[in-house]
Design a protein around this nucleic acid. Structure first.
Lengths: 148, 148
DNA sequence: ATCAAACTATTTGATATCGAAATATTATCA
DNA sequence: TGATAATATTTCGATATCAAATAGTTTGAT
């Protein structure tokens, strides 16, 4: 994150935007994951539970793509959720390469408690912006994310 | 990252903004760190070299704050840079709690090669936005990062 | 029908990062 | 001076990533 670069005006503007983007994302994520409402869930664990409660039982590689995390990490994420009794693995009997992940009753309860709090936390983070501004921001960010 | 939440309009807008923010930051960072110009440097290693070349020799905890990473990680980051011969540690003789990190000749050469390429990569990422839009984006992000 | 090669899903291994606790050194002040 | 506080760095344990290895399934030539 170059903070002392002598360059053209275009370069400096882009650098500045990049630094602000990184800082904003980092600080929002850190505020969210340190929030007590997260119940000791990591962002990945949260994402898995959230996907399961809305989409039903899923196999690992689908879960991986839903939460935008690497598939090789799903093994650990699910290991840890399983240790806490929040999900259950079941080897698919038709295609034995797949393992289907199911929410347990405890997992369902946790995510149904945590999710609304998490959403409220996000909403409160974004309340420094008006709705207009949030829409504006979303449009700018979409361009950057697409392929920029 | 809740993608299927039924909530109020305000909640959905905030969620949507949050998802776009995360995606934009992730995809830009991943494009930058996979770029061949990075010469096998991690983002942290790059940040350390960049701070050293612009600010001169620094001790670990200052470096940590400059690159916005946890201080406990600096030990490893500097270990690895030292293994590659890009920096050198020197225990401060006046206050022996401190270790001052110096760029070596090789380190200086590498960062002076990589930095302009990195800046160019960032500039090109942001070229999907006009300068006006980048300024607008910067202003919105600053509000979010500040304390949101 | 069969079985090797290609394909897909998951796990393992190496490394990076983080937070909290441990260690090393120095500063303070009773 | 010596006990205690303060600061700098390292270590430890956990989680995340990527690439390579492993396990299981499908395909297609024979």
């Amino acid at each position: 994150m170059p903070t002392h670069y002598n360059g053209t005006q275009e370069e400096i503007l882009a650098l500045d935007s990049y630094i602000k983007l990184s800082r904003a994302a980092d600080s929002i994520n850190s505020r969210l994951s340190n929030s007590p409402s997260m119940q000791e869930l990591t962002i990945s664990q949260f994402g898995v539970l959230e996907a399961l409660v809305h989409l039903g039982p899923l196999c690992q590689n689908v879960l991986g793509s839903k939460i935008l995390k690497s598939n090789s990490n799903m093994t650990t994420v699910i290991d840890n959720l399983e240790k806490r009794g929040l999900v259950k693995r079941e080897r698919n009997s038709e295609d034995r390469r797949m393992i289907t992940i199911h929410l347990t009753k405890e997992g369902k309860e946790i995510i149904e408690t945590v999710l609304p709090q998490h959403v409220a936390a996000i909403k409160s983070q974004f309340e420094v912006l008006t709705q207009e501004e949030q829409i504006q921001l979303g449009n700018l960010l979409r361009k950057l994310g697409r392929q920029g």
